[in-house]
Amino acid sequence: MDVFMKGLSKAKEGVVAAAEKTKQGVAEAAGKTKEGVLYVGSKTKEGVVHGVATVAEKTKEQVTNVGGAVVTGVTAVAQKTVEGAGSIAAATGFVKKDQLGKNEEGAPQEGILEDMPVDPDNEAYEMPSEEGYQDYEPEA
């Protein structure tokens, strides 16, 4: 019985440690998101679009440190934060509304985080759909 109880105690310690790591990862992701939003706020009209992409990228980098179902929630929060940063930029006159959601080359930025393969159960990952990809044929 002692062996059984000791095993359960060790398992509990492992769960607590994993929860603490997840909590730490979420806190880091939130900190990076805040950094990115402050970065966007300090940019001029020309830099705002690039700044919004930076927020998304920093958040995406930190999301990889967070495991399990938390990833889905962090990704949703990050996307809403990026959308909010863009709205703030438009409201303050840093950028025109028609410039939001495009990178410096004018290509749409939507789907940055949505296409990231995420499995809350950590069982399997699927690649994003290939609808947006084109076949590449090298020139002879």
Rank of each mutant, 00 (worst) to 15 (best):
G14K: 08
S87E: 12
S87Q: 15
T72C: 12
K32D: 00
G51N: 06
K32C: 02
E13K: 04
K6R: 05
I88D: 04
V3E: 00
T92G: 07
Y39N: 03
G68H: 11
A29H: 03
Q24L: 10
F94Q: 05
V16F: 10
T81K: 02
P108A: 05
S9A: 04
L38E: 03
A85E: 02
A78H: 05
T54V: 14
G51F: 11
K43Y: 12
K60D: 01
E130P: 10
D2R: 01
E57C: 03
N122L: 06
E110N: 11
T75H: 13
M1N: 00
M1I: 00
P108Y: 12
F94H: 04
G41M: 14
I112E: 05
T54H: 12
D121V: 04
D115T: 11
T81Y: 14
T92Q: 02
G41L: 02
A89C: 11
K6M: 06
E46M: 12
G73F: 06
D119M: 10
V70F: 03
L38H: 05
G84D: 03
V37Q: 00
E137D: 11
V52I: 05
E114G: 15
A27R: 11
K60S: 06
T59P: 01
Y39K: 06
Q134G: 14
Y125M: 03
K10V: 15
G106A: 12
A19K: 03
D115Y: 13
H50T: 12
V118N: 11
V55H: 01
E83N: 09
K34P: 00
V52P: 01
A90L: 13
Y136M: 09
P117H: 06
G31D: 06
G51V: 13
P120M: 08
A140S: 09
V49M: 15
P128L: 09
E20R: 02
V118S: 08
T33M: 15
P108M: 13
E114K: 09
V118K: 08
K60E: 01
A85D: 03
V74C: 11
Y133L: 15
E105N: 10
D135W: 07
A30F: 15
M5R: 11
Y125N: 08
K43H: 05
E105M: 11
A90P: 03
K97Y: 02
M5G: 01
S9Y: 08
T72V: 04
D115G: 15
V118Y: 12
A69E: 03
Q109K: 14
T59Y: 15
V3M: 06
K12N: 01
E57V: 07
V63P: 01
G41T: 09
S129I: 07
Q62I: 07
L113T: 08
A11Y: 03
T72N: 11
G47H: 13
E35D: 11
Y125F: 15
K96A: 11
G25F: 14
T75Y: 14
T81E: 02
K96V: 14
G47V: 13
A107L: 10
S9I: 14
A124P: 06
G106K: 06
E104A: 12
A78Y: 14
T22C: 09
E110Y: 10
T33C: 03
N103L: 06
A124L: 04
S42C: 08
L113H: 07
H50W: 13
A30Y: 15
A107S: 09
P128Q: 06
A91T: 06
T44Y: 10
P108K: 10
A76F: 08
T75A: 15
T33P: 00
V77L: 12
Y39M: 09
D119S: 04
Q99I: 12
K21F: 15
F94I: 06
V71K: 09
D121E: 10
N65Q: 08
P120Y: 05
P108D: 15
A107V: 07
E46A: 04
G25H: 15
T22K: 00
K80E: 02
L113G: 11
E57Y: 06
G132W: 14
I112S: 11
K34R: 05
G51C: 15
L38W: 05
Q62N: 09
E110Q: 06
V95I: 14
T72W: 06
A78V: 12
G86I: 13
P120H: 08
E57K: 10
A89F: 11
T59R: 01
T54E: 02
K45D: 00
A107R: 06
E114V: 09
E104F: 12
K43S: 02
E130R: 04
G73T: 12
K23Q: 10
K97W: 14
M116I: 11
E104T: 09
M5N: 02
Q109M: 04
Q109T: 11
F4A: 00
G93M: 03
S129R: 04
K96N: 14
T64V: 13
K45V: 15
Q79R: 09
A140F: 14
E61M: 06
E130T: 07
N103K: 09
A78D: 01
Y39I: 09
G14Q: 15
K6H: 03
K60Y: 05
V77N: 01
E105I: 01
E105H: 01
A89H: 04
S87K: 03
G51A: 14
E46C: 09
S42P: 01
K21Y: 11
T33A: 05
L113Y: 12
A76S: 07
E126C: 14
G14V: 14
P138V: 08
V49Y: 14
G84A: 14
E61G: 04
G31V: 04
S42F: 10
V55M: 09
A30C: 09
G84N: 10
A11C: 15
S129T: 08
V37R: 00
K34L: 05
K21R: 13
G14T: 15
P117M: 06
K21Q: 05
G132K: 09
L8R: 00
V26L: 08
P138A: 09
E61R: 06
V70Y: 03
K58D: 01
D135K: 05
H50M: 14
H50A: 13
G132N: 14
E61K: 10
Q99W: 13
V82Y: 10
D115F: 11
T22G: 05
G36I: 15
L8K: 00
V40Y: 12
P117Q: 13
V71E: 02
G68E: 11
D135E: 09
A89T: 07
A19V: 10
K34F: 14
E20H: 13
T72K: 07
G36E: 03
N65V: 10
S129F: 13
A69D: 02
V118R: 07
V77Y: 06
G7F: 07
L8V: 04
E123S: 11
V55D: 00
V66M: 12
V15L: 10
T44E: 00
E35I: 15
S9V: 14
E57R: 05
N103W: 13
E126K: 06
E130Q: 10
P128C: 04
V71I: 15
A29G: 02
V26Q: 00
E28A: 06
M1Y: 00
N122S: 08
A107G: 13
V48K: 01
G47P: 01
G67Y: 04
N65E: 08
A124I: 02
V70T: 01
G51W: 15
K45F: 13
Q79S: 07
T81A: 12
V95M: 03
K23G: 01
E61H: 04
D135Q: 10
A29C: 10
G73L: 12
G47L: 12
K12I: 03
P117D: 08
T64N: 12
G14I: 15
A124Y: 14
Q79F: 05
V48L: 11
L113M: 07
Y125A: 04
S42V: 07
G36K: 15
T92F: 15
D119G: 06
E131L: 04
V37P: 00
L100W: 01
D135L: 11
A56L: 07
E61S: 09
Q24Y: 12
G7A: 05
E20L: 14
N65L: 07
V26F: 14
E104V: 07
E57D: 06
G14F: 15
A140D: 14
V95P: 07
T81F: 13
G7E: 04
G93P: 04
E137C: 07
L100H: 03
E130V: 15
Q62T: 08
T75W: 14
G101Y: 12
L38C: 08
